[in-house]
Amino acid sequence: MIVGYMVIIIGVMYFVAIRPQKKEQKKQSQMLSALEVGDIVLTTSGFYGTVIDITDDTVIVEFGNNKNCRIPMQKSAIVEAEKPDAE
């Protein structure tokens, strides 16, 4: 009887905690793989910028109108990305 309850509890935990997290990771991975030069991105620190260059695991992002403010960062620091013509 106790084993049955344990199986039910583990099943509920899977559908409540683990499965949504894996779905979100898959969505994030797809977004990062579709990232292109010129895309507007939001970083984990809350800054909006434009992608200037992309390498394997880093991107160079330009912030604001100042062309001298280009910062290399890891792709994992990008939270959202949108195409410039999708307004």
Score class of each variant (00 low, 15 high):
58 T>K: 10
1 M>D: 02
17 A>D: 07
44 T>C: 04
22 K>I: 14
8 I>M: 11
65 N>G: 11
67 K>G: 00
15 F>C: 03
30 Q>F: 10
36 E>Q: 10
53 D>W: 04
47 F>W: 15
71 I>Y: 04
19 R>H: 13
48 Y>N: 12
19 R>P: 00
60 I>L: 08
82 E>Q: 13
73 M>Q: 08
6 M>W: 13
58 T>M: 05
58 T>N: 04
52 I>L: 09
17 A>K: 06
80 E>M: 11
65 N>F: 15
1 M>L: 09
34 A>S: 15
87 E>S: 06
15 F>G: 01
66 N>Q: 06
40 I>H: 09
26 K>A: 15
79 V>I: 14
54 I>L: 10
87 E>M: 12
43 T>V: 15
46 G>I: 12
25 Q>E: 15
9 I>H: 01
12 V>W: 08
49 G>R: 06
5 Y>H: 09
41 V>Q: 02
18 I>M: 10
16 V>C: 07
29 S>V: 10
75 K>D: 00
67 K>T: 08
70 R>E: 11
83 K>Q: 10
27 K>A: 14
12 V>G: 04
84 P>W: 09
7 V>F: 08
29 S>H: 07
7 V>D: 10
78 I>N: 01
45 S>T: 10
7 V>Y: 04
73 M>V: 09
72 P>M: 04
17 A>S: 11
21 Q>F: 12
13 M>V: 13
87 E>Y: 12
39 D>A: 02
86 A>R: 02
45 S>D: 06
11 G>M: 02
27 K>V: 11
43 T>F: 12
11 G>I: 12
2 I>H: 05
76 S>K: 09
76 S>W: 03
81 A>H: 11
13 M>K: 02
10 I>S: 04
2 I>C: 03
45 S>W: 04
85 D>N: 06
43 T>K: 01
65 N>S: 14
67 K>P: 02
16 V>T: 09
22 K>R: 15
69 C>Y: 05
34 A>R: 12
34 A>L: 13
69 C>Q: 05
82 E>M: 14
59 V>K: 00
41 V>A: 07
4 G>A: 09
44 T>E: 07
71 I>H: 02
65 N>E: 14
41 V>R: 00
24 E>F: 15
33 S>F: 11
53 D>H: 08
25 Q>P: 04
26 K>G: 06
47 F>G: 01
3 V>D: 10
67 K>M: 13
30 Q>N: 13
49 G>Q: 02
13 M>H: 04
57 D>V: 05
79 V>W: 08
61 V>M: 02
85 D>E: 12
27 K>R: 09
6 M>D: 07
7 V>E: 08
41 V>Y: 01
60 I>H: 02
77 A>C: 14
44 T>Y: 06
74 Q>A: 08
29 S>L: 14
56 D>K: 11
83 K>S: 06
87 E>L: 11
14 Y>W: 12
1 M>V: 14
14 Y>V: 15
76 S>D: 11
61 V>Y: 00
21 Q>G: 03
50 T>M: 12
67 K>Y: 07
84 P>E: 06
30 Q>C: 05
71 I>F: 01
24 E>N: 12
41 V>C: 10
15 F>W: 11
33 S>H: 08
54 I>F: 02
28 Q>H: 13
22 K>T: 06
